[in-house]
Computed example of a mutant assay.
Amino acid sequence: MLDSAILCVDDEEIILRSLRDQIKKHFGNSYIYECAESGEEAWEVIEELTDDKIQIIIIICDWLMPGIKGDEFLIKVHQRFPKILKIMLTGQADTVAIERAFSEAKLDYYIPKPWDEAQLIAAIESGLKKRYD
């Protein structure tokens, strides 16, 4: 059974599908791939995975979402799970929100939308190498 997961959080289903497909195409069956359409749904996924003893290693998160902005969500994630690699993938965040995410959530990478698949995969690989080697 797999024991590591990658979580994508975005309020647009097409974005989630695209992210999951691109990441899975590169990493294959090495990880569990989960998606959530809001911060609230993401917390439900996080709780389920944690209960099942599955470690979330990466969260890729949009900034502009209903309920909670991506920087606020990632700050809460960091407070509880500081070792998770955090990537903000957005076309909407302002510089204050991005700086706040780097400062308070220890954001690992910011990637603007529309994203380049190679840049996304390189950020994930670099982050994994830096964090888990």
Rank of each mutant, 00 (worst) to 15 (best):
V96N: 14
I58Y: 01
S103H: 10
E37Q: 11
D133K: 15
A101R: 03
K25P: 00
T95V: 13
I121N: 04
Y109F: 14
A97D: 11
E44F: 12
Q119K: 15
E44K: 15
T90S: 15
R17I: 11
K106N: 12
R100Q: 12
A105K: 01
A42M: 09
D52K: 15
S38N: 07
L16C: 11
Q92S: 08
I121R: 07
I87M: 06
Q22V: 12
T50M: 09
I56P: 03
E48G: 09
G91C: 05
A123N: 10
L85P: 01
E99M: 14
D133C: 14
D71A: 12
G67K: 03
D116Q: 14
L64W: 10
M1T: 09
M88Y: 04
K53L: 15
I46N: 01
E104D: 09
I68Q: 13
A122L: 14
G67I: 08
M65T: 04
A36P: 06
S126D: 10
I84Y: 05
R80S: 11
L19W: 01
L16F: 02
L107I: 08
G127R: 14
E41D: 12
D71W: 02
H26I: 08
I121Y: 04
D133L: 15
I124G: 07
A123S: 15
I14M: 13
W63S: 02
N29Y: 08
E13L: 10
G28T: 06
E40H: 09
D10P: 06
E40W: 08
D21Y: 06
E104M: 14
